[in-house]
């Protein structure tokens, strides 16, 4: 099964992102293929270690691969040493590669 690519652009402060993260969790639990949550734009903000990062760490434990757009991290001054370990920086190419794999691709 090709799995899912969920592109999350919204950060918790803006609201509207939580249900999408929950969707990632439920898709991972359903074991319908690999699930990647690709953080872009302001969604990378909680990847910098803070109280808000706990949600991402929990999500990773449920089997979701969490990637963060390197450009968005740099744009926001988030250096690699400030990231929680559960989030891996990735080039935008990683999102394209997962689309090419045939993952169902959803944007929030």
């Amino acid at each position: 099964m090709p799995g899912y690519l969920l592109i999350q652009s919204r950060d918790p402060m803006e609201g509207g992102g939580e249900s999408f993260d929950e969707l990632a969790r439920s898709l991972a639990s359903a074991k319908s293929g690999p699930v990647t949550l690709f953080l872009v734009e302001n969604a990378v903000l909680p990847a910098r270690k803070s109280a808000a990062s706990a949600r991402l760490a929990e999500l990773a434990k449920s089997g979701v691969e969490i990637l963060a757009d390197e450009f968005a991290l740099r744009e926001r001054g988030i250096s690699r040493d400030r990231l929680i370990p559960e989030v891996k920086p990735a080039a935008i190419d990683a999102a394209v590669d997962r689309m090419v794999e045939g993952r169902k691709t959803l944007w929030n």
């Binding site: 652009s9 872009v40 080039a91 190419d93 394209v96 944007w107």
Partner: peptide, 19 residues
């Protein structure tokens, strides 16, 4: 919206890969 730039970046990446 920032979405526009991100969308263009994905399109650019896809084309650079030859798709």
């Amino acid at each position: 919206q920032a979405r526009t730039t991100t969308g263009f970046r994905m399109i650019d990446a896809a084309l650079r890969k030859g798709h």
